[in-house]
Design a protein around this nucleic acid. Structure first.
Lengths: 138, 138
DNA sequence: CAGGATCCTAAACGATACTG
DNA sequence: CAGTATCGTTTAGGATCCTG
């Protein structure tokens, strides 16, 4: 069958097609939102930090240098809602809450860590490229 | 020589050590800034888009759905300064400018794409986890 | 066509104070 | 301890107009 005539679909990617594919390039696609959560300023660091195992709130706060209480709580909540982070609260006083990665969370965080590690390792190279760019600009 | 006595460095990670390692957890470390540029809202999408090969400004604008001219120009500039993107301007009227990935740029973008791809593929699973979380909340 | 300049809004973020 | 609530600041981002 040849239902797809040349002049019927002028654009290569219809919106519907991109949504079905989960296309991050599509503005309306939910994958773009998830990608934003994962790659958010603090999301990245929290995901990597949790690879070290279960952490308490204050542990994370210490580990992720410079994060405020507010942002830590907020980012943990969105990561939990996306199913990447598991939150376990022990009903004791004073409160004791433990955060860890879910199986899916381990999968994303692995990729995030790959990226972060690469940047850390390549930092000298990158900084040098920057200076070269500066020189050219002058 | 034993210049490093027990009570001299009480913290496991001194700032100097973390900077030397290029530690993203360290607030002052440049790697954190590079990571931010790469994982910025539009940075991610542009890096992935450029994997398809050389693009002109307007091509990118079309491909990265929803980006404004301002943010496209701005993000391309920081990516260029980090040495990930190469900008080639042909001195003609009307202007013709081509953007592509540098060798280093290809390396980061590969990892960024890995992440984006994983999210696209796992989207159904993720969305389902979200709904489950919603149900628990109710 | 590829932006730069300007103005403005909305969102992110931080600091602080407070609570079970 | 693990947050929430509130407020003020800063930054990201968009819209529009302009130019070589």
């Amino acid at each position: 069958m040849d239902a797809r005539r040349r002049d019927e679909i002028p654009l290569a990617d219809s919106l519907a097609e991109r949504l079905a594919r989960g296309d991050v390039f599509s503005e309306a696609c939910p994958s773009r939102e998830v990608l934003r959560n994962v790659t958010s300023r603090w999301g990245v660091l929290i995901l990597v930090a949790l690879r070290g195992g279960t952490h308490r709130f204050s542990d994370l706060r210490r580990k992720v240098n410079g994060i405020s209480e507010k942002m830590l709580a907020q980012t943990l909540q969105t990561l939990e809602q996306d199913g990447f982070v598991l939150r376990v609260a022990h009903p004791v006083i004073p409160p004791h809450v433990e955060y860890s990665l879910t199986p899916v969370g381990q999968e994303v965080s692995r990729r995030v860590e790959d990226l972060a590690d690469w940047i850390e390792r390549s930092l000298p190279q990158i900084l040098q490229a920057r200076e070269t760019a500066q020189t050219r600009a002058v």
